[in-house]
Design a binder for these strands. Sequence first.
DNA 1: TAGATTGTTAATCGATTAACAATC
DNA 2: TAGATTGTTAATCGATTAACAATC
Lengths: 205, 205
Amino acid sequence: MNSDKIPDIIIGRLPIYLRALQRMADSGLKTTSSQELGELVGVSAAQIRKDISQFGEFGKQGTGYSITYLLEKLREILKVNRIWDVALIGAGDMGHALANYQGFANRGFKIVMVFDSDKEKIGQKIGDFTIEDVAHIVEKIKAADVKIAMLTVPASAAQNVTEKLVQAGIKGILNYAPITLNMPNHVKVQYIDPVTHLQRMTYYL
Amino acid sequence: MNSDKIPDIIIGRLPIYLRALQRMADSGLKTTSSQELGELVGVSAAQIRKDISQFGEFGKQGTGYSITYLLEKLREILKVNRIWDVALIGAGDMGHALANYQGFANRGFKIVMVFDSDKEKIGQKIGDFTIEDVAHIVEKIKAADVKIAMLTVPASAAQNVTEKLVQAGIKGILNYAPITLNMPNHVKVQYIDPVTHLQRMTYYL
DNA sequence: TAGATTGTTAATCGATTAACAATC
DNA sequence: TAGATTGTTAATCGATTAACAATC
């Protein structure tokens, strides 16, 4: 156990462990080891143990880790033992795909509002949501006390929207726009750009 | 200049530099510095210089880097000074969003075939493509000599499809299924799972 | 008990930063 | 020329791995 600041690189691996453990639980397994979990996620057993031990002693010598117990602990650590409301900004194809995605709910997230700037789209429905005017984004997000946003607007609009999101009290942004955002330090961003991921692989081809 | 093996972490930053430089070029800029580029992408100037200098001497003391020249060099290094054909597997919402995405072409990629296993979907159109039966995926990909795939099938199908992709000679997979894939070492994978990205942020909230 | 596996320490390995001579 | 900025070296910082006592 270690109460110092945990490196971000470790935090980044925990969701991967969580995902693998959930699959093990779903297939009825009760117990695992650092060895087995490591093989499943492509990480050394030593690293699995080191990462987990930052937060406490969750295993047992000789038998390994109880899957449900470790799941519970990881969910606590990552604060996904609850449901986070999420605002979606940008009702294009990607926005639609995310709005319809069934995989959020059981992993801690729920889209609760959708915004766009296109007059044609405002007022229309995506699944259960009515698309709202991005002009009202600051007050709507504040009123709903939403802390997480997913951004699927064009690159040209992303920085501008980001500033409104910060103003609205958003603390974490999952950014699908292909641009690095300029942000205050207290707001976290994660980037998803399929092209940068593809370009990372072509180097090796 | 350094001819040893370049660390993957450096390769991972190059697409980010490339993206920022492209934006600078689009807005008419001719020249930049490690300082300026670093601020734009959130990386130290020293690191920008170190990363770039792995591949040659592309800058000039006193004046910095020519944007078009550095763009050209980075595209060469990443092998995106050409267009890569890409196979898309999974014609769900995410598959549709990717098939319709206009941002691939000018950054080195082009979807050329779409597969699904759903009899209802096979034969239907997505944009310009007719959805093909995943049962024929190995011969179709081999025949077209495609080396890169994007995987947007459910987690339960992903490992199975991956094995077929490897058999078909695919060398890089962009995986949207929320599961770690088991792969031979000579095939590269990149993972995109919005939930793991979100869970990485909630820790800090 | 004997075997298995944890949590942790120390050693190794790798990445980042600071500093500056070279030079445009 | 004077000012700016590169490419590179050495120092620092951080992450990973190997090894093993503790113990279930």
